[in-house]
């Protein structure tokens, strides 16, 4: 699985129709160790800029990461 660092993040309280049942949830832009950036859902513990992340199994076509 890919690893990376939090470039920026937010916790979303007001969601589009499809995700209303999931609030609050965290989304981050991840700087990948292999290069490039990806926007991902964060599972588990909340993360902050600079935190190390590891990818976990995606769902519904989403990239999902959690704190390493």
């Amino acid at each position: 699985m890919r690893t990376g660092t939090v470039y920026t993040e937010t916790v979303i309280h007001s969601a589009p129709e499809k995700f209303v049942s999931e609030v609050p949830y965290q989304v981050a832009i991840v700087s990948l160790d292999e290069g490039g950036r990806v926007t991902a859902r964060i599972d588990g513990e909340r993360v902050a800029i600079g935190d190390k992340l590891v990818e976990t199994e995606g769902r519904d076509g989403m990239h999902v990461f959690r704190k390493a």
Partner: peptide, 24 residues
Amino acid sequence: GPGEIRVGATFPSLFAMIARRHMY
């Protein structure tokens, strides 16, 4: 769509991520 909206990002959340980085 395939990049950021699919993971549940909204327009406020995109500008929130910009603000977070600007603060940092």
